[in-house]
């Protein structure tokens, strides 16, 4: 009884039919999420993380691409501020998703907003924003139900598969070059993002600077490369603004299209 009440405090009223619709919409994506979780789990253990620490990380951090991105930094004991800033950079797309979806959640109590935000990953946002793109009313049990249907599948598939990956990772020999797997998985996130000129220009500059500055202390070359790349991308967009999405909703949709595959 107590648990039920606590649960109600964290989750807004949801429409059951919409919840089931959300489950069904995210269901087929569960396979892709699981492959991704499995790879992340194996990669964490293979990078030298102990099983309890890897489990703790996957349960709390709950952000696959950021977890994979900081693995090489953690493995070389990079200063923590650099680790956190790197994760922040990879996660900045979520700020855009939050800005785009806020109108459906803004009137809820803060605990409910905090939890919904935490669960608002790439795929959940993509499904949610498409499903309600034409609705004028923002924030009702139907929308919350659909959101939580998707979020439950996403969370469950991710946690199940990443935990399985962590346990399996402990069994694999470490000399298989599996750390390469983390980079290959990140390629699968990166490639769909490269469909417009500004981002391609920015990424090219980042790649060149990142390789040239790899000897910089504390991975500062990495941050320098990102700052330069973003500057070039923004400059390219300013010079050739035709055909680029404008406004937070259009940009969020564009980003969500990119995330479709994983």
């Amino acid at each position: 009884m107590h648990r039920r009440r606590a649960f109600h405090g964290l989750i807004p009223p949801i429409d059951r039919a919409a919840y089931r619709e959300g489950l069904r919409a995210m269901g087929p994506l569960g396979v892709a999420i699981s492959v991704w979780g499995l790879v992340t789990g194996v990669a964490m253990v293979n990078a030298g993380m102990s099983i309890p620490i890897a489990l703790l990380m996957t349960v709390t951090v709950f952000a696959g691409s950021a977890q994979l991105a900081v693995l090489p930094l953690l493995a070389t004991s990079t200063p923590l501020p650099i680790v956190w800033v790197t994760a922040l950079l990879v996660n900045l797309r979520f700020v855009i998703f939050a800005a785009a979806a806020r109108s459906s959640f803004v009137r809820l109590p803060w605990q409910q907003r905090l939890l919904a935000g935490y669960l608002n990953g790439d795929l959940g946002f993509a499904l949610f924003s498409r499903r309600f793109a034409d609705d004028t009313e923002r924030g009702n049990p139907e929308q919350w139900g659909y959101f939580y249907g998707g979020a439950v599948v996403n969370w469950g598939a991710w946690m199940g598969s990443s935990v399985a990956g962590i346990l399996l990772g402990g069994l694999a020999p470490t000399d298989w070059g599996l750390e390469l797997g983390a980079y290959l998985a990140l390629v699968a996130v990166l490639i769909p993002m490269l469909h417009r000129l500004p981002v391609v220009a920015g990424v090219a500059v980042t790649a060149a600077i990142a390789v040239a500055t790899v000897h910089f202390p504390m991975r500062l070359g990495l941050l320098l490369a990102v700052v330069a790349g973003v500057a070039v991308a923004v400059a390219t967009e300013t010079l050739r603004p035709q055909g680029q999405p404008h406004g937070v909703l259009a940009i969020a949709d564009d980003l969500a299209d990119e995330g479709e595959i994983i």
């Binding site: 855009i96 920015g202 390789v211 990102v226």
Partner: peptide, 20 residues
């Protein structure tokens, strides 16, 4: 908004290229 939009792609690129 624009800077946020490009940062993730650049960050992933920097990580991958410095690793590989």
């Amino acid at each position: 908004e624009r800077a946020l939009r490009y940062a993730p792609a650049c960050a992933l690129t920097a990580i991958i290229t410095q690793g590989v």
